[in-house]
Design a protein around this nucleic acid. Sequence first.
DNA 1: CCAAGGTCTGGACGGTCGTCAAGAGTCTCT
DNA 2: AGAGACTCTTGACGACCGTCCAGACCTTGG
Lengths: 210, 210
Amino acid sequence: MTEAKERARDRISRRQVDKFADRRAQLAVSALRTLAELGYARTSLREIAQNSEFSHGVLHYYFADKVDLLTHCVRQFEEVCVTRYDEIVARARTAAELERDFAAAMAATLRADAKMHRLWYDLRNQSLFEESFRADVLEIDRRREEMIHHVVARYAELAAASAAVPQAVAYALLDGLFQQALLRHLAGEEAAAAELERAVPAVLARVVAV
Amino acid sequence: MTEAKERARDRISRRQVDKFADRRAQLAVSALRTLAELGYARTSLREIAQNSEFSHGVLHYYFADKVDLLTHCVRQFEEVCVTRYDEIVARARTAAELERDFAAAMAATLRADAKMHRLWYDLRNQSLFEESFRADVLEIDRRREEMIHHVVARYAELAAASAAVPQAVAYALLDGLFQQALLRHLAGEEAAAAELERAVPAVLARVVAV
DNA sequence: CCAAGGTCTGGACGGTCGTCAAGAGTCTCT
DNA sequence: AGAGACTCTTGACGACCGTCCAGACCTTGG
């Protein structure tokens, strides 16, 4: 009995906890949508609430304060931000195939998720001024570096070569390339994504040594 | 008489204009100092005034509004931001010398002007959300690209090689490298500048083809 | 069916923001 | 010396910010 009761209570408690966590996640989605649209500097709690189906008061029911909300956003953002190129890596049978698909995937996400990427760079930069997100941002950046490393390592393997630069450098180069393309894409330059797609193979070839 | 008077008036008028422009520049310096410290999101006009020797009201005497001030800041920033590597380019007699000095100069400015560089990336990113600075930011970015191109072109010349990637790509790569180093440097990683200095020659060698 | 607790609303608070204007202070020219 | 233009301070304004709270709403267990 007691056991059954306890199990029930746990189930309920877990359900409540899950419900609580679900709503937090839902509100974080609204917050991320707002952030992607307005940027960190202009995003207010009232604006976030208006982009959700709740009133502004509820944010303080689910989050202790603004920093708590934004930290949760950054962490939740990680899952979206670390876009997986793993499938492309796993599928590719030749170096040429990998470099083609990887370049196409970068160009595609540049076109499709430009505002999301813009937000990522905004948050990463914000972490240079604000201590609070720094740890989470650095963790995401580390994960992104690993993601790129997987691509480069597999590419080197398929090309019967070895990495010519440290993985941190490879990531920095490809990230710089992507960021520049994002800048141009959002400035209205139509060819930005296509040029990115053309540049990626050249860079990929240069970060490995035959 | 009339001519003398006119000349005098012009002189005065010019002096007043110059005085006006000088004060604008002086206030812009205070604004840039504040921006470098707090970031775009946190910088207010009152804070800028407090970092100057004037009261907050004077800002609206010299600038129409906040956007006017910030635009002026960005434009004035260009002269500081487009750090000249020209001297290094002009002095270098061999490719090895150029790559050594260029790498050392990048590491040096990373160490010395980290907050200024942090501000640049903040403003550049802000321009992705706000139309107002976009044109000026893109202009600065173009100038930075040219600056890097000078280095790369001279390096290729000294190495009896030719550029292997478009100059926009070369800039994107080196900028990405620098930004990553800035991230780590400001996160307290002591070795960031040294690692940048080591990575730059490798990248430089790879953006030219023998 | 009712008490209890979880959920949400809407308004109020103190503070800061950008902006503005009235007036004091300063300089210049006649 | 005094008028007039230029420069700067100070305080106020409405708007918006993050935060908090009293109470309505809703679900659920007994």
